[in-house]
Simulated assay, not measured.
Amino acid sequence: MKPSSSCNLLTILGPTASGKTRLAVSLARELSGEIISADSRQVFRRMDIGTGKDLHEYGAVPYHLIDVLEPGQECSVFTFQRLFLQAFQEISARSQLPVLCGGTGLYLDAALRGYRMVEVPENPRLRTELANKSDTELAAILLHLVPDQHNRTDLADRNRTIRAIEIASYQPDEQEEQEPFPAIQPLVLGIRWDRAELRRRITQRLRQRLEAGMLDEIQQLHTGGVAWERLDYYGLEYRYGGLFLRGELNRNDLFQKLNAAIHDFAKRQETWFRRMERNGVTIHWLDGAGDPVAGARKVISGYFA
């Protein structure tokens, strides 16, 4: 099957542990596709087990936006959008189909909603005003500016909170010219599971990651120069794994607390997907417990020939 004029971007989304990568790879093979990751952590090198890269699943399918930054760096939504648009245009120029795959809501929005983000410069005056604020006061300011705060890590780190306030407060120059957003015509497929089954899958995958050496990976990152506080920023696995390695959690508490936190994260992802639908993104939902590949083929039959 080849791309048609009615769709130039296939998107596969779903909560953590839903099987997005496997579905995306299967469809990319059939549709002459190349995968673009929409995962806020898989952009970092040497963060493989904790982020669930599962690179063995790709086989010969090309992928993009994985292993493009060093641990310790930051990947803003602006950075992601710039990298996504570059990959989208390069793949399209090769007459291949871009297949966006991931579960990071902000990144998916940045790719699908058609707005060109602006790189926000630092605001020295604002930073001076915020310097004497307490962490609680900074969090209150950010939540006032962005009541529906999806990225909770912006509230857990003082520097990130200040940067988030800076971005939320930014007023671009009206004369500042924006590059037009490419004409993207997406077909969005989502994988949905019964809540109890998704919880089982999340728990099983966490056990597998721990057995595969996730804690060793976290220790190696820290030994290689990534501060514990910085690892906290890279997500739940690295935050709780770091607490364990510092002796602040025992092994049982590590598993129980991390498992519960990932379940809560999956709920927030599903809430974000519902908000995307309210904002006009049509998501064709597939039953993860059935045959999502066959279900996807039925949906895309009207878009590809």
Rank of each mutant, 00 (worst) to 15 (best):
A183Q: 13
G290F: 12
L65V: 05
A17T: 14
L83D: 07
S6G: 05
Q73D: 04
T161M: 11
V299H: 07
L231I: 08
N132T: 10
S18Y: 12
R94V: 10
E277F: 11
I141P: 05
V118T: 06
Y115M: 11
D39P: 03
A266W: 11
P172K: 09
E119C: 10
D291T: 06
C7G: 02
R152K: 10
Y63P: 00
D232I: 01
S95L: 15
R246W: 14
L155F: 04
R163V: 08
I66Q: 07
W285M: 06
I184P: 01
N159D: 15
D54K: 00
Y58G: 00
N123F: 03
T16Y: 13
D67P: 08
D135A: 03
A38W: 01
E197N: 12
T11H: 09
E90S: 15
Y238A: 14
H284C: 09
R158N: 08
F244E: 05
S26E: 08
T203Q: 13
G247A: 04
D54E: 05
Y63W: 08
Q256P: 07
Q86K: 14
Q220H: 10
L55G: 05
R205K: 13
A38C: 06
F255N: 09
L258A: 09
D54F: 01
L210R: 10
A28Q: 03
P71M: 04
S4M: 09
H144C: 12
Y107S: 02
Y238C: 12
L215I: 06
V226P: 04
D39F: 01
D157G: 12
G224F: 03
G242E: 01
G241A: 12
L243W: 13
A164R: 08
M214I: 02
T161L: 11
V120D: 12
K2L: 15
R29A: 13
R278F: 12
Y233C: 15
R201K: 06
V43S: 02
H56N: 06
E122W: 15
I35T: 13
M47E: 11
A168E: 06
I162F: 14
M276G: 06
N132R: 09
P124W: 07
L9A: 01
K2F: 15
G33T: 12
G52R: 00
G295H: 04
S40A: 14
P180R: 03
P3Q: 13
T51Y: 01
